[in-house]
Amino acid sequence: MRLFGLKTCDTCRKALKSLPEAQLVEVRAEGVPEEVLARAFARFGDALLNTRSTTWRGLEPGDRARPPMELLAEHPALMKRPLIEKDGELYLGWTAETRAALGV
């Protein structure tokens, strides 16, 4: 199981504490593999972009209008976190629904 997120993100830390077998992939340092990002965007669409983040608020209006996949490739911290991959399935966020699906 891989958890794509940030080690400084409180939500990611909560998820990691509940999922000790998960491997953290630090998206700022390592990025998200293109194949995983494409599958996540196909599944979650624009919900994959965290428009409440400080990274988003720091973007110019013209940049915000760019395609989401371009923005995520250039600014991995824009991704809603955590993105969890387990057995080929993807889960977004640390919601009650995600926790139930993962058996936590």
Rank of each mutant, 00 (worst) to 15 (best):
R2G: 03
F4G: 02
G5A: 07
G5R: 10
G5M: 11
G5F: 15
L6C: 10
L6W: 13
K7P: 14
K7Y: 14
K7V: 12
T8Q: 09
C9M: 09
D10Q: 08
T11V: 06
C12R: 07
C12K: 05
K14G: 01
K14I: 10
L16K: 03
L16T: 01
K17T: 13
K17A: 14
S18N: 10
P20I: 07
P20V: 05
E21K: 13
A22T: 01
A22M: 06
L24F: 11
L24G: 07
L24S: 07
V25R: 08
V25Y: 05
E26Q: 11
E26V: 08
E26C: 07
E26K: 08
E26L: 10
V27N: 00
V27R: 00
A29G: 09
E30H: 14
E30Y: 14
G31W: 15
G31S: 03
V32I: 14
V32E: 00
V32L: 02
V32F: 03
P33I: 03
E34V: 02
E35F: 04
V36C: 01
V36L: 02
L37M: 12
A38M: 01
R39E: 13
R39Y: 05
R39F: 02
A40I: 04
F41N: 05
F41K: 05
A42D: 13
A42Y: 00
A42Q: 09
R43V: 09
R43F: 04
G45N: 02
G45W: 00
A47F: 11
L48F: 07
L49P: 05
T51M: 14
T51V: 15
S53T: 04
S53A: 06
T55D: 11
W56L: 09
R57I: 10
R57Y: 03
G58R: 10
L59D: 01
L59N: 03
L59P: 01
E60R: 14
D63C: 15
A65W: 05
P68K: 02
P68E: 05
P68C: 06
M69E: 09
E70R: 01
L72Y: 06
L72R: 04
A73G: 15
A73Q: 14
E74Q: 15
E74N: 12
H75A: 06
P76Q: 08
A77H: 06
A77F: 06
A77C: 07
L78H: 08
L78F: 09
K80A: 06
R81K: 10
R81S: 01
R81T: 12
P82T: 06
P82N: 01
L83G: 04
L83Q: 08
L83T: 12
L83V: 12
E85D: 12
E85L: 15
K86G: 09
K86D: 12
G88E: 01
E89S: 14
E89W: 05
L90F: 08
L90G: 06
L90M: 04
L90S: 05
Y91A: 05
Y91D: 05
L92A: 01
G93R: 10
W94T: 03
T95I: 02
T95P: 04
T95G: 08
A96K: 12
R99T: 09
R99E: 15
R99Q: 15
A100K: 07
A100R: 09
A100P: 04
A101C: 11
L102S: 13
G103L: 03
G103P: 08
G103E: 02
V104E: 13
V104Y: 09
V104I: 11
